[in-house]
Design a protein around this nucleic acid. Structure first.
Lengths: 201, 201
DNA sequence: CTCTGCTAAATTGTTAACAATTTAATTTGA
DNA sequence: TCAAATTAAATTGTTAACAATTTAGCAGAG
């Protein structure tokens, strides 16, 4: 019954886990990542691990050097981060406009569930879960509105979140997202966009 | 002596070639890409090919489906393309501001050479070479100003260029880039940004 | 003590073989 | 003849072994 694991599932799985750990600050900047170590940890060979690391490299989280492997990328400068925030906002506002137009009752259920998960993580003050459910919520409307640009959005968001996560206040995060979702439920586009802008900074 | 070939060089090489062919429209949308075929063509095993295809997937050019392999992604909608253009412009203007501040005589030589290559390709009306040298020129100042965001920029640029390349007029392309480079040589930031905006559309 | 050069270990790069899955072709039955 | 079921081919997913390169440790000379 349960889906048999296959390479891309492995690769996806590893990719997601490593990304989550990077976001939550488990690895130091410039720390090298060893393929064999991860392969052993996940009980696979190096192949799927390489796939995952390569993808994270493309997202900009990791940096590759030939024959030296991959290491955690150094953080963005303030100015670079500002640009990334601007780009993400531009993309996500576009998606939100489209999402609100096409939103279904099922979508509303889904985002309510995702918001609940985020709230719960905030109350438990669990950084990895907050970061993950934050991204998952935003990702929902992006994926619905423009699957073609989902990977673009993910790359920007991850790089954004990597620098400041440690400083965020959980109560603020919860409040901001509650506001966004409320505005969506009211189908108030302008209000939603304003709430988005307050959240993506 | 000459650099011994290694996996990432293979992977890079394959990645660049496939990207170029995709940009110049050698493959149809939704056409599947077969690993073994490429491996045979490049005289390698499937490993490096998989690496390359995976990276192009992350860039959004290709789309992966588990156990079915990779195919050329369907094109962006008009609205999606507009958003991508906006994001790229935001990023590239940021890079240009920084680049002009720090530009060295060596940089000026380099971009002159790259511009010459682009002009030559335009005169020969060679679409693959125009697309490649166009990207190479822009890439130069992006890489100089913000290596961290180079891969982000590349993803946006490739997706942008994939849809309209066939329609571009070579004379316009040549002129626009000559204008940009001239403005850089004059170190006139405002003028440069205006020329950039006229080119990235 | 420091520096250089050598040796050994660790790590990445590549390949070929095998397993699992999907796609196609063919057979079989009504 | 057509459709479903079966078989065969093609394709991707995974692994382990080997090659090439880098890194670390160490010995000896100055």
């Amino acid at each position: 019954m349960s889906k048999v694991s296959n390479r891309l599932a492995f690769s996806d799985h590893i990719c997601d886990i490593i990304r989550r750990e990077l976001i939550s600050g488990k690895f130091a900047h410039d720390e090298p990542i060893r393929e064999q170590k991860l392969a052993t940890r996940f009980g696979t060979s190096r192949g799927p691990v390489r796939d995952a690391l390569l993808r994270l490299t493309q997202e900009g989280i990791l940096a590759y050097e030939t024959n030296k492997g991959v290491r955690v990328n150094s953080p963005l400068s303030e100015a670079e981060r500002d640009v990334v925030v601007g780009m993400r906002l531009q993309l996500e506002k576009f998606c939100m406009r489209k999402f609100i137009l096409l939103v279904t009752p099922s979508d509303l259920d889904q985002i309510s569930i995702l918001l609940e998960r985020l709230s719960s993580a905030c109350k438990r003050a669990s950084l990895p879960e907050v970061a993950e459910s934050d991204l998952a919520l935003h990702r929902y409307w992006v994926a619905q509105a423009s699957p073609h640009l989902e990977s673009t959005w993910l790359g920007l968001s991850v790089r954004m979140i990597m620098k400041y996560t440690r400083l965020s206040k959980y109560e603020d995060i919860e409040k901001e997202h509650t506001n966004i979702v409320s505005a969506i439920l009211e189908k108030d586009l302008e209000k939603t966009l304003i709430c988005l802008e307050a959240n993506i900074i």
